[in-house]
Simulated scan of single mutants.
Amino acid sequence: MSRATIFPVLAAAAAAALAACTPTLGPSPPSGYGPSSGSAFRAADFAWSTESGRGGISGQVAFHQGKTRYSCAHATVILTPETPWTRRRMKILYGSTESAAEPAEAVRARTPSAPSGDYSAFVRRTTCDGSSRFTFGGLPDGAWYAITIAKPPGGGEGLALMKRVTTTAGKMTPLAF
Score class of each variant (00 low, 15 high):
M1P: 01
S2E: 13
S2F: 00
R3K: 14
A4N: 01
A4V: 05
P8H: 12
P8T: 06
P8W: 06
V9D: 02
V9M: 07
L10W: 14
L10E: 07
A12W: 07
A12Y: 05
A14Q: 11
A14W: 09
A16F: 02
A16T: 05
L18T: 01
L18Y: 04
A19K: 04
A19L: 12
C21K: 14
T22A: 08
L25Q: 13
G26V: 04
S28I: 03
P29S: 08
G32R: 09
G34R: 14
P35D: 09
P35A: 10
P35M: 08
S36C: 02
G38F: 13
A40L: 13
F41G: 12
R42W: 11
A43S: 15
A44C: 04
A44M: 08
A44D: 15
F46W: 01
F46A: 10
A47E: 12
S49C: 04
S49K: 03
T50F: 00
T50L: 12
E51P: 00
S52P: 09
S52G: 13
R54V: 02
I57C: 04
I57G: 01
S58K: 13
S58R: 15
G59M: 09
G59H: 09
Q60P: 01
V61I: 06
V61H: 02
Q65C: 00
R69I: 02
A73D: 12
H74G: 04
T76C: 00
T76V: 15
T76E: 14
V77W: 10
V77Q: 09
V77L: 13
I78M: 06
I78E: 13
P81V: 06
T83G: 06
R87P: 03
R87S: 10
R88M: 12
R89C: 00
R89Q: 14
M90T: 07
I92L: 11
G95C: 07
S96A: 15
T97H: 01
A100S: 14
P103E: 09
R110K: 15
T111I: 01
T111P: 00
P112Q: 03
S113V: 10
S113T: 15
A114Y: 02
P115V: 05
P115S: 01
G117K: 00
Y119H: 11
Y119T: 07
S120V: 05
V123Q: 13
R124L: 13
R124K: 15
R125A: 07
T126G: 12
T127Y: 03
C128I: 08
D129S: 06
S131Y: 12
S131L: 15
S132G: 09
S132Y: 08
F134T: 14
F134I: 08
T135E: 15
T135F: 13
F136M: 07
G137C: 01
G137Q: 14
G138I: 10
P140T: 10
W144D: 01
W144Q: 05
A146Q: 11
I147D: 03
I147M: 05
I149Y: 02
A150T: 02
A150E: 04
A150F: 01
A150W: 07
P152E: 12
P153G: 05
G154E: 11
E157C: 01
G158S: 11
M162D: 01
M162W: 05
K163P: 02
K163G: 04
T166V: 06
A169Q: 14
G170S: 14
G170H: 10
T173A: 11
T173C: 10
L175N: 11
F177I: 14
F177Y: 14
